[in-house]
């Protein structure tokens, strides 16, 4: 039986993996190791339930429930001085767990410390917008919605930001192929001419070296020169290559044409 290829994750995968290979993990340190992080952990823990917390590569990581995201970020912003949210986005774990992981990357400018808040939501679960706390989320959450299709509640303007408004699918999902899906391949044709023109126009040829022998409308073709738009499917008329005295000038000897032009 040929190998089954999963459809829920069509991204690039390792060509070969040793049978006994176990990937090591980046070491997780205890929160108590750093005094500032311990205080942050305590403050957040008083407000919301912390599912897991550790220090990974010098940054505090806190796992919370998705409905607590506003409360946790409020504590971090107002009590712990995390004045800036550097980045927020999601990670697609639909194939494994049917969930998205949403992360908020926060920065304390006074102590130069960074905290990452992680939360997991189901595929069709919405998450509350953090725009009231950090206005940068205006663009970042729009991008998250655009790329993953995660609904954000109470966002001031939740529209696609990078892809066109009428795009089908969410490109950063693992189910979305790198080359794009059928809608992506026919996007311009469908939009400008209509679906019925797909057969007439034909699929896009992405080979830059491609030359169509029977195409007499475009610039480059193989074979004899033919008038524009002539049907050459039956083969074009064989023409000898014509040399013209007017054009071909022998520069080594004195040329009549050049002499007359002078």
């Amino acid at each position: 039986m040929r190998k089954y290829t999963p459809k829920n994750n069509v991204q690039g995968k390792a060509k070969y993996t040793d049978r006994f290979w176990v990937a090591p993990r980046v070491p997780h340190e205890s929160v108590e190791a750093d005094g500032h992080f311990a205080a942050v952990h305590r403050h957040v823990g008083q407000k919301v339930e912390i599912l897991d917390a550790y220090v990974e590569l010098g940054q505090l990581v806190i796992h919370i429930r998705p409905e607590d995201n506003i409360a946790a970020l409020e504590v971090l912003k107002n009590t712990c001085d995390y004045a800036m949210c550097s980045e927020l986005s999601a990670i697609d774990y639909l194939a494994q767990d049917g969930e998205f992981e949403v992360f908020y990357q926060l920065l304390n400018l006074k102590k130069a410390k960074r905290v990452r808040i992680l939360t997991r939501i189901k595929e069709n679960q919405a998450i509350e917008s953090i725009v009231p706390l950090y206005a940068m989320a205006n663009f970042a959450e729009r991008e998250m919605y655009d790329m993953f299709g995660i609904q954000v509640n109470n966002h001031p303007y939740l529209k696609r930001i990078i892809m066109p408004d009428d795009w089908v699918g969410h490109p950063l999902r693992k189910t979305y192929p790198l080359q794009g899906d059928e809608h992506a391949a026919w996007y311009e044709v469908d939009k400008i001419f209509g679906k019925e023109y797909r057969d007439i126009i034909g699929p896009e040829n992405r080979d830059p070296g491609h030359i169509d022998r029977y195409d007499s409308q475009r610039f480059s073709r193989v074979g004899y020169e033919v008038p524009f738009g002539v049907d050459v499917t039956e083969g074009e008329a064989e023409q000898p290559i014509e040399y013209s005295k007017q054009i071909l000038v022998d520069y080594t000897r004195g040329s009549e044409v050049l002499d007359t032009r002078k």
């Binding site: 390792a14 990937a23 090591p24 993990r25 980046v26 990974e56 590569l57 550097s86 960074r114 990452r116």
Partner: peptide
């Protein structure tokens, strides 16, 4: 070159 390096499991954010 053919298979690529395999960093350990984990997350990193480097500014």
């Amino acid at each position: 070159v053919t298979q690529g390096m395999r960093p350990p499991r984990g997350t990193v954010y480097v500014p």
